[in-house]
Nucleic acid binder design. Structure first.
Lengths: 141, 141
DNA sequence: CCATCGACTTGCAAAATGCAAGTGACTGGA
DNA sequence: TCCAGTCACTTGCATTTTGCAAGTCGATGG
């Protein structure tokens, strides 16, 4: 019992945050969840058009990291909705910093509304009639 | 009223910031520059051991984006010192948000001191041996 | 019974990463 | 004059990660 090297690169908080979130899509998924999106389909519909395999992989990674949770909200075909955990919600601070920097230094960029409040978000948050089959065990070749 | 699609993915400030900085190394380079590091060698010496080809590529990208600037600090073999521009310094806000989130949610992570203030930074900021060369009128380029 | 839908998988090509060794411009010493 | 050494990169691959398009699976409604 001696994890002599618990960190992939260093003990730096920034480095470890980036090991988890340092790519072009993870924080956009968090952004959309903060905006009230909940289902796979809603997330896949972002204006940036995230490839579906990447989305699935990121959801898995973020869930393993405790940033999001998938909770079933329907049994017939078991359906899961993705939501941010408290730690995921805390990433709002990071998102805000990026919005602030981007709007200030990349001309033409805008904020796509922020926070779960707002009628548009509430409307988008309700999946009308979805389904889903989850639990994927590793299969042999 | 023109250039209908100037953005790679969308007009979202977050998405565009990530197109520039969304990888595992860029923000670490900015972090080190904020800490007062200036030369290629100092940057390559970070605890995360960034591969040298990646470092060179990131420095090029960040300079093109106006986040850093390179100024020659020696001419015989022309050597450049990298420094943050005002826009690069504004990324401190983003770094701080990551530090805050990381320290709160990734156990064991720490802050590696922040901001350009402090004696350590001042000491580290000086390339140790600015070689002076006599004028030998040798054409370079 | 079948077309459809939502949520993913799979296959594969293309790009990004990582590693190690090499290069160019010099400096200082034998 | 040679040679070892430094610094700042570059180059050549091998490995990994992306991205795209199409396929699959469990319903469902017509």
């Amino acid at each position: 019992m001696h994890a002599s090297k618990p960190f992939a690169r260093s003990a730096c908080a920034v480095a470890n945050s980036l090991d988890l979130l340092g790519d072009k899509w993870s924080l956009l998924v968090v952004r959309d969840l903060l905006h009230g999106k909940r289902t796979y389909g809603e997330l896949a519909d972002s204006p940036e058009r995230i490839p579906t395999n990447i989305l699935a992989e990121r959801l898995r990674r973020l869930e393993r990291a405790g940033i999001i949770a998938s909770t079933p909200y329907q049994q017939r075909p078991t359906r899961y909705a993705y939501t941010l955990t408290p730690s995921g919600r805390d990433l709002g601070e990071v998102l805000l910093a990026f919005v602030h920097w981007g709007k200030r230094h990349i001309p033409g960029t805008v904020t796509l509304s922020h926070g779960p409040a707002g009628g548009t978000a509430a409307a988008a948050a309700r999946p009308r009639r979805p389904r889903m089959a989850r639990d994927k065990t590793k299969r042999g070749v």
